[in-house]
Write a protein that binds this DNA or RNA. Structure first.
Lengths: 207, 207, 207, 207
DNA sequence: TATGAATGAGTCTTCATTCAT
DNA sequence: TATGAATGAAGACTCATTCAT
């Protein structure tokens, strides 16, 4: 709970990020329509009106949220991959572990859920995600798989399917974490899933 | 005098199913909050008031929808599996193909999306799905995997992870179909994904 | 006070007119912005939501109000004038008395006030009134004055000014009635004003 | 070092008038409720907060505006009239021309519009105007008309009506200028109206 | 003296629900 | 059984006002 002094604190530059953080949490739980501006405001430690100083409205908050969270995640992965050299196997192992880490920490996983939920109401956002996150992610993964096939590390398989097989358990992790994990009696071992996935996958892909 | 069936035909027995079908479509696109009773009524070919003759309200429609669609799908699979005898490999192949068929035809895929979207607003439904669909589905799959390990067809691997690996591409199919497929230029080959999945998976699981 | 029975009376066809009548009264007193939908609804004997069954919103109510009240008033005058034949003097006398009657009875006078008030916020309505009411009214009056000049009943004077001189006391009546009459200790004698106006005007216009 | 006058120049004495000037313009266009403090502040070249240094709030600005603008106009006319001696005709001619000048120049005409608009929301201001402006103006005009009748220059007519006939075209000018003139293709000749008015009026009033 | 970020009461608008027909 | 006009609670958004700087 924040110290009750300073109801009138002025922090112009910090506000937008705080509001988006709060919005992410609220949207994740309530969905777009179910989230009230009051909820978001309260979560951000401000009042309703303040949100309107920084955003045009609820939809603008939502769109900012979705758009802002792209580069951050993907760019980090790109950076890491550039500085990496090795076999396709090692690369794949590294890539999946990196993405798994992104998904299983922080609030990023819920964004996927939000996009799924609201693809009907905001098709342009679904398209945006499709092209900016999904397609770009698949393209990177494709490069790795194709490299592996070219170097004789992997069998020759349809790449479009193979890359989805690589990603599928990560998707499952994200969904599990954001929706069903709350009912787990014992916390699920996501790392164990990834390890097993890599074990099975690499053996399955081997020539 | 014209036949008196006309507009006010009494179809007390057919109505609830018609309304639920309509509701499924509307909820899938708009989400729970975004769906208006008017939308559902129109999709069902009745007016708002009629829905209240058969359901207590919006929430009751939604809950009926989610609860009703369980048995149907899962029971069918159970039935088929009982009459089936063979190796764990064949069983796994059969099970995944059956589920894939359920997912890639009809409107069932969107139910998953609905549950994900509304797990925050209706936690009891998420719990219900978790226990009635997910856990039961995982249990059946576990039985197959354990059988395979026991019979020496599969390597000894953590079953809880292995079953999720089996299911993950199906989950991806469902999500792809209900959310991102609309932006595909060429329709995605779901069967190809399943075939490749089984190919890689069974090789990966082999001792 | 209306009988308290029948909160749920259904009178689809009567509602729009009732709402517009109520809106006229409320807008006249409070102005556009100051009028609350609740006020209008209450004045119309319905609730807020009902207004939205018949109008798209506050602005639509306002615009309907202004547009609807044109033909009614002006058309009646036209009709009467067509069946009238006589000297320009008699015609002028008849026309001014007719308009004066329109202005000093019913709620029409407040419409002018509303237009004046909101010409800044709804310029298209001011333009509409200008062209549909003012210009058409001035044109009719011009015809009379020009007739009088042609027939030698009136002096030759700039018609554009003369017609405004004819109308000005009517405008004053409308404004007085809708704004300042409320503070009169004794009710003002509008008919006396018109009589004096015609007396002075016709003498002033005479050759 | 640059001269320190800059943004924060203290202009305690000039501010109130600047703000009222700005407020007059904004109220005239938007009406009372439609005018935002931000609008007024911007028009005055200050920020919202500054207005509150000089006025208690929006209503205070509005009331100051209406009250302040009385003496100025009327007092000037009084002054001029005192130093004037001649026939009632000449006096009337002078008075109407003076008022017409006041109305057709500067921003005074819009004040009338504001009073009309807000007489419902601020009845005390309407009463104030009624007594301070209207009644006093009518009283002065009555003196002239009565003088004319007493001196045999004018016919014996009901003075209460005659004075309104004198003023009506001025009122029309004010309203035309503040509301409908914006749609004129050619600028209206207000002086021509007054000239014609005096021509017709004086002839009409003559015995 | 001046600023402008922050507040929160007030309104429009939507839509689930009711009920007379 | 079916309709759809009417209701009213709920929530997005605005803007007059406050106050730390």
């Amino acid at each position: 709970m924040p110290p009750p002094q300073a109801r009138w604190a002025r922090r112009k530059d910090a506000r937008p990020a705080e509001i988006l953080d709060a919005a992410l949490k609220v949207f994740a739980v309530k969905g777009y329509a179910g989230a009230r501006m009051d909820d978001i405001a309260q979560a951000a430690g401000v009042t309703k009106g303040t949100i309107y100083l920084y955003f045009d409205g609820k939809e603008a908050v939502f769109k900012s949220l979705v758009r802002d969270s792209i580069g951050t995640a993907l760019a980090g992965m790109d950076e890491a991959r550039k500085s990496f050299h090795g076999s396709a196997k090692t690369l794949l192992r590294f890539a999946l572990n990196t993405i798994a880490h992104l998904i299983t920490t922080g609030d990023r996983a819920v964004l996927l859920k939000i996009i799924l939920s609201e693809s009907g109401n905001f098709p342009e956002l679904a398209r945006f995600w499709r092209s900016e996150i999904i397609d770009r992610g698949l393209a990177r993964m494709s490069a790795i798989v194709e490299l592996g096939i070219a170097q004789g590390e992997f069998r020759s398989l349809p790449v479009e399917h193979a890359v989805r097989l690589c990603m599928a358990p990560l998707l499952l992790s994200a969904i599990w974490r954001s929706t069903f994990a709350q009912f787990d009696v014992a916390p699920y071992d996501y790392q164990g899933l990834i390890d097993t996935h890599l074990d099975v996958l690499l053996k399955g892909l081997a020539p």
